[in-house]
């Protein structure tokens, strides 16, 4: 959706995903410039922190509107975490909560026209998925030692099937960060591209452009739902991976 109305129909729908340097920075020869992507991340963090810090400012026994919203958000993620991981993984809840809020606010910020969706970049989603993957694997080894490898043997399977099953299990385990990151990235990319393509038709069709306009309005609603849903999916899968590492099968 970003910049949907800003660029003419002649531009590629992928222009909205371009990274633009705002403040050029270099660290040891590596380009770490402050870009539009970085700006949106900073805004996401500021909004999230502000939402909770201001909402919980008073910490009243009977919550007001903002406090209620902050508490409901917490209850939602806490409920999800409780159902999938349980009390044992309590220590990892802050990380999961941060992950959910960061992705959710990033996705929703992307729905603001002329903004930028940092979750539509595979490198961002892959970095998050890789941290989850590495963290969960370390957690599994720390908790179970070498016994963690038994995770790759499906329980109850006959021994003669092991040469087939174990490689499948290992591949499925290793593909976790890829599926986790591609799912979020692809959803954001496809949704925003589709919006941009259909928005292009509005100007092209003239009066008949009301039809794609109505479609864009409907799709914008759908995209907001997907923004929430993908943050939810990323979080619940992270919870399931933590649960796997804690309890193996």
């Amino acid at each position: 959706m970003a910049g949907a109305a800003g660029h003419g129909g002649g531009h590629s729908p992928l222009v909205q995903f371009e990274i633009k340097e705002i403040v050029p920075l270099k660290l040891g020869g590596i380009d770490i410039s402050f870009t539009n992507s970085s700006l949106m991340m900073v805004i996401a963090v500021a909004l999230t922190a502000g939402f909770f810090l201001i909402g919980m400012r008073r910490g009243a026994l009977v919550p007001g509107r903002w406090q209620s919203a902050a508490e409901l958000t917490y209850e939602f993620v806490a409920g999800l975490f409780r159902d999938t991981v349980g009390h044992e993984g309590r220590r990892y809840f802050p990380a999961v909560f941060t992950l959910f809020m960061f992705i959710l606010v990033g996705n929703l910020l992307g729905m603001v026209p002329y903004s930028f969706t940092f979750t539509s970049h595979i490198i961002v989603t892959f970095a998050m998925a890789a941290v989850v993957f590495v963290g969960v694997t370390i957690l599994g080894f720390a908790k179970h030692g070498l016994h963690f490898f038994s995770f790759f043997v499906p329980p109850g399977s006959p021994v003669w099937m092991w040469p087939l099953l174990i490689p499948i299990e290992i591949i499925s385990y290793l593909s976790r960060p890829i599926s986790l990151s591609v799912r979020l990235f692809a959803n954001m990319l496809a949704g925003h591209t589709l919006l941009k393509v259909i928005a292009g038709f509005i100007a092209m069709l003239g009066v008949a452009g009301v039809l794609p306009l109505a479609l864009v309005v409907a799709l914008t609603g759908l995209e907001i739902l997907i923004a929430f849903l993908q943050a939810y999916v990323f979080t619940i899968l992270t919870c399931l991976y933590i649960n796997d590492a804690l309890h193996l099968h």
């Binding site: 770490i32 991340m41 941060t98 970049h121 998050m128």
Partner: peptide, 10 residues
């Protein structure tokens, strides 16, 4: 830059 700022903000 994206990885850097992801960590710097997250």
């Amino acid at each position: 830059t994206q990885i850097f700022w992801l960590f710097v903000t997250f």
